[in-house]
Design a protein around this nucleic acid. Structure first.
Length: 511
RNA sequence: GGGCGUGUAGCUCAAUUGGCAGAGCAGUGGCCUUUUAAGCCAUAGGUUAGGGGUUCGAUUCCCUUCACGCUCACCA
């Protein structure tokens, strides 16, 4: 059984017991709200505009509003409080003459900041012009036993809001997100932006004729990416299962099944390191569309991201980490080979095996493990030398075949596949390619990947026989795309860590 | 996993070279019938993240455990 651990909690717990002793239900069932705080304010502004000569002759407007007490000021025989609901804040003006001594005593003795209350009365303006409810009935809706951090704010002459006191401890904000949300309106806004991002994404894709689908999260074989999976077990079926690391192989089966264009928005799980841009579970959107190649996917990508930014922030021009970023098409396009050559002077085509490329990188002062495969070395060059500078949206084109087992070759080019990744704000945002639809080539690539990674690498991509069987029925030529939705939200909300855009980010268990 | 840093009252932060652990807000009691960071008077609140050590004496120095942050490694 919970017991108060500090003075404020002891006080609140005592008040709860006092209420019970008086026969007052601190958590009543019945609520009778007639107006949100915003609706009450709006309705009153109509009949008593701010610039009216007198507010006394405004017709009476009776309301019942509910909310959490976020500021209070007991001033002898009057009591002011601001309540907050999902729509905003509104001041309550309580006079002992209007509510009676019993209610006033209840407010004085048992009501705290953080309590949810219901107030009925007539709308009015105070002497300073603030729209308020002159309360004649006051009911406690829910007693708060633990104190929330108190944040006071003041509007300065230039309209900016100065805050006094804050709830800023990063760890506590993540562990007790409910308190963070309750107290910090900025945090609430981040997740409204997140919701608008997802909604705009669906709106765009639906408008382009895509069908939203859902595919298995628990999979007997994982694939579609190079990552370590989480493993789980189905007891009755005696079957080990993996939590998916991507949607790719299931979505492409659906093109065999004659949907022209599909997308899925959902959670992926990767059993890997945690960082400012990696969470063990994260939200991904992938789409696949028949009869387009990666150029068509680039066109969709530019238009989609610009559309989402417009819907979420009101503009295609955003600020991220102090940079002005223009998301309107067309975006910069550069081949991976040219970008690496520009930044490092290394042309990987001149170094076609791992030892040779590694030596060139050493000579250029770029560290990498000598055990890395050739493809991994190229990836290191991209990540270290190129990626951090890609602030403005950039399509990075044409990746080495070895690190892209699901993408189609560029005709007449032995080394490269039709693949792009796109970068904004120095972060990799997503990945796309002209999808490999030749079942014999695909089988060959799976076999090569198995050899490449051998058994010491847990990122090895296992052979998915059923996927190959699907492809043998014929898969239309198609373009595919994947984007890290959390990173997109980071960009649009101007947050530097993924944890700020996840409601409940993964944290180590506390002992 | 490695390196660096942080952890003091419910919240935000102080504490000189190792020398009585403090403030503001929140709380409690009192005054105040138009306040809004309300104000005034009084008052309570601490295993200084946990454990161990050095010392007459540790928030401070050392070791260790834990969590978080930054960074490196890792991360189609």
């Amino acid at each position: 059984m919970w017991e108060p651990t500090n003075t404020p909690e002891q006080d609140r717990f005592r008040k709860l017991q006092e209420l019970r002793a008086q026969g007052i239900d601190a958590y009543p069932t019945q609520v009778e709200r007639t107006h949100t705080t915003a609706a009450a304010r709006q309705a009153y502004e109509v009949i008593s505009p701010a610039d009216a000569e007198s507010h006394d002759d405004a017709p009476p407007l009776n309301v019942t509003v509910c909310g959490r007490i976020v500021r209070q000021n007991l001033k002898g025989k009057v009591y002011f409080a601001h309540i907050e609901d999902g729509a905003g804040r509104l001041q309550l003006f309580v006079r002992i003459d209007n509510v009676g001594e019993d209610t006033y005593e209840l407010i004085k003795q048992q009501i705290d900041l953080g309590d949810f209350v219901q107030a009925s009365g007539s709308m009015m303006r105070t002497r300073t012009g603030e729209i308020s409810v002159l309360v004649d009935e006051f009911v406690l809706l829910s007693k708060a036993l633990s104190p929330l951090p108190v944040i006071k704010e003041r509007e300065l002459e230039d309209g900016t809001i100065e805050r006094y006191g804050e709830f800023s401890d990063v760890e506590e904000r993540y562990r007790q997100r409910y308190a963070d949300l309750a107290v910090n309106p900025d945090t609430r806004e981040v997740f409204r932006k997140r919701a608008r991002t997802l909604s705009a994404m669906r709106q765009f894709l639906d408008g382009e004729g895509f069908l939203e689908v859902e595919t298995p999260i628990l999979q007997p074989i994982y694939g579609g990416a190079a990552a370590r999976p989480f493993v789980t077990h189905h007891n009755q079926l005696h079957q080990d299962l993996f939590l998916r690391i991507s949607f790719e192989l299931y979505l492409k089966r659906l093109l065999v099944g004659m949907y022209d264009a599909v997308y899925e928005i959902g959670r992926d799980f990767r059993n890997e390191g945690v960082s400012f841009k990696h969470n063990p579970e994260f939200t991904q959107m992938e789409f696949y569309k028949a009869y387009i190649d990666y150029h068509g996917v680039m066109d969709l990508t530019e238009r989609m991201i610009a559309f989402i930014a417009e819907q979420v922030t009101g503009s295609t021009r955003i600020t991220f980490a102090g940079h002005e970023i223009e998301l309107a098409p067309p975006w910069k396009r550069i081949t991976l080979r040219a970008a690496i050559r520009e930044k490092t002077g290394i042309d990987y085509v001149d170094h076609r095996d791992a030892p040779s490329l590694h030596a060139a990188m050493q000579a250029a002062g770029i560290n990498a493990s000598p055990k890395d495969t050739w493809g991994k070395l190229v990836d290191t060059l991209l990540g270290d030398a190129v990626e951090p500078d890609l602030i403005q949206p950039t399509f990075m084109l044409d990746y080495p075949r070895d690190i892209s087992p699901l993408a189609k070759m560029i005709p007449g080019d032995e080394m490269h596949v039709e693949r792009f990744e796109f970068f904004i704000g120095g972060m990799e945002m997503g990945n796309a390619f002209t999808e490999l639809n030749d079942p014999t080539d695909q089988e060959q690539r799976f076999l090569e990947m198995g050899r490449l990674y051998a058994d010491e690498d847990e990122e090895a991509m296992p052979m998915d026989e059923d996927y190959l069987r699907a492809m043998r029925y014929g898969m239309p030529p198609c373009g595919g795309f994947g984007i890290g939705v959390d990173r997109l939200v980071m960009l649009l909300a101007d947050k530097s860590t993924i944890r700020e855009v996840l409601l409940f980010p993964h944290l180590r268990e506390r002992q």
